[in-house]
Design a protein around this nucleic acid. Structure first.
Lengths: 193, 193
DNA sequence: TGTAGCATGTAAGCCGTTACATGATTGA
DNA sequence: TCAATCATGTAACGGCTTACATGCTACA
């Protein structure tokens, strides 16, 4: 008995980042999408370059997944907003529910450089791990703030960001692990010899 | 007082993956480099495709950073091995010690899909997070084995893999955090409603 | 008055992937 | 004998980046 598969043509993930950000109900400019990406999705999905977002929006629009509107208003300032169309929402849903599992992709420069530590200077390695630790710690601070804000909203009865809050919680544990790992490595590097 | 910067032209990171793997002292074929990448660096640096590794080796060779040797031996089986040249080692060192800090790049599909959970089916989300949890758990099993092996070597006085062992330790804490986060999310998803 | 931020794009180029192609060796 | 693994590549293509280019607006 064979299962009839629906056509499994997926858009590039960046498309779903854009669709996902628009799925919260607000019309956004390309610029704003980028801002939101830098403040939210970047914790689990590296924010694409500005130019890439414009390209993505163009693609999505030609496929009817987003619609464009000139929102320049009174002022002359150019302002083109994009919103999710019904097909856009449908496509996002199809992906969330239908796309096969995909393992995370990690490019962890600090761990990598430590890996080839036998060709490096110990003092410099310590410096690098310290920098990484500081970075992780900053991520945790930012995420903590976001998590608190989202929690407040959820507690006040607004369910829009309930999943976002769960993801923020995920991030706190995730980056907490990374920070812990940096600290352990640092202790070993400083202990050593 | 201005600091005179050395020319900061870096190779693509994949080059350093290749150089790094060759820095452990063994001559390797392109195929073997890929195998080693899949067994070691992939935990912190997604392993590039086979074809990319061959391209990288070609580039490195034209720059004199690796040398090629036909090691086909008695049998007709083609076998071209690559080794690190002195300039290759120098370049790897220059990078390890001199490249500026670079934050990790994460593409975490599970967290991302949870983020747009408001457009998905709860049951399917649970399934996805479970799949992710199983994946993380497998990573931890593999890493645990590797860590034990490396530890045994280090304890026996072989310092070659001391840094590799530290990175394995890093990975255990890192993916431990990810697994914990999945479990927490799962609990919340199942609890909810 | 001038700088930072808002806002929108184009062009060039590389990294890296998938698909295609080939063939030998080892072991079940 | 047949499949999996070892081994080496080429071709086409797409995603994403950096650099370039432009101009308005708010605010210090």
């Amino acid at each position: 008995m064979s299962v009839k598969r629906e056509s499994e043509n997926w858009l590039p993930s960046t498309s779903y980042v854009v669709l996902g950000l628009l799925s919260f109900g607000t019309r956004l400019t390309g610029y704003e999408i980028r801002q939101w990406a830098l403040e939210s999705t970047r914790f689990f999905w590296a924010a694409p370059a500005m130019s890439q977002i414009y390209r993505e929006l163009e693609r999505l629009q030609t496929r009817g997944l987003v619609d464009e509107r000139d929102d320049s208003g009174e002022h002359d300032r150019a302002r083109k907003t994009f919103g999710l169309t019904p097909s856009g929402l449908a496509e996002l849903q199809r992906w969330v529910n239908g796309a096969p599992f995909e393992p995370p992709t990690i490019r962890h420069a600090a761990a990598f450089r430590l890996f080839v530590g036998h060709v490096g200077d110990r003092a410099r390695l310590i410096e690098l791990v310290e920098e990484h630790q500081a970075w992780a710690s900053e991520m945790l601070t930012d995420l903590g703030q976001i998590h608190d804000d989202l929690r407040a909203g959820t507690a006040a009865g607004d369910d829009t960001f309930r999943y976002a809050e769960m993801v923020a919680q995920w991030g706190l544990t995730f980056y907490g692990g990374d920070e812990q790992a940096s600290n352990d490595a640092l202790a070993r590097l400083e202990d050593d010899r």
